[in-house]
Design a protein around this nucleic acid. Structure first.
Lengths: 141, 141
DNA sequence: AAATAATATTTGTACATACAAATTATACGC
DNA sequence: GCGTATAATTTGTATGTACAAATATTATTT
């Protein structure tokens, strides 16, 4: 069977899963008008208002250039502002950005419930933690 | 802790893992001059020479437009050819494409060994299978 | 204090991938 | 057999993300 070839490869299955779950997340976050990646950035800023772009990249595991692009876009939507602090650029929520938080968290919960319903809450959460650990372990290899 | 927010989300951890393992795969496949996604397409064609683009999309879990783009690129590199069959387009390996197979499989093995070394072979394979199952289960939700 | 090194960010560019609309080709109902 | 429905592919366009090079700012060395 052809499938076997691929289903044995972590690269392949991780990519496949990511496409599926990303699509789900996009659906759940659609009503915010943001794609989930941007919503997560906004959550990160809310958790630590004024963090630098470097820190954002670390938390979200995105490269600096990607962070720049994301922040620009959210600035254009008036959801964050940036202030220069030496060579760093700090990112702050605007009122409009703050006003979205609740909605974002609702989307996040819906997403969580949606996959918990399929996988079981326990199992879904266990898998999620495992994926995180694995990503960290592999990073150093 | 900020991290907790994200490490609890399957969307987030799956994306993170995918970025890490994709980078590893790109390194391993670099000497083929192909990114891993293209190499996998080539493997799929070798397994079932003359399959249609639709079938390719199903096996690789890619949308039709993406398959078109990938096949075009591999045609430009003279690794596959296509033949029209009614409204379908069938994809065949060229000699040059066939000649790459061995190298591709070597890369695939290196990749496999590389993450097995970190995760353990058993555990790596178990996780891989699990991710595949989960992606299939979630797809129907 | 000037010269150099280090660090954070930005910019230009490229790539994988998707969606929606357009196109092409077959199949079906009359 | 013709008109319409269906199916496969392609095309135009957009998005998320990365890398490499450029820029800007601060820190270190002399």
């Amino acid at each position: 069977m052809l499938d076997k070839y691929f289903t044995d490869c972590l690269y392949f299955t991780a990519n496949r899963l990511t496409r599926v779950i990303t699509r789900m997340a996009e659906e759940e976050f659609a009503r915010t008008g943001l794609s989930p990646a941007y919503a997560f950035l906004l959550m990160a800023v809310q958790e630590r208002n004024g963090l630098t772009q470097k820190e954002l990249g670390e938390v979200l595991h995105l490269t600096p250039s990607t962070v720049t692009r994301f922040v620009e876009k959210l600035e254009r939507k008036l959801l964050v502002t940036t202030r220069q602090d030496g060579r760093m650029s700090r990112v702050y929520l605007t009122d409009k950005g703050r006003a979205m938080q609740e909605q974002i968290e609702e989307c996040w919960s819906s997403l969580h419930e949606r996959y918990a319903k399929v996988l079981g809450r326990e199992e879904g959460d266990r898998l999620t933690r495992r994926l995180y650990e694995v990503s960290v372990e592999l990073e150093q290899a």
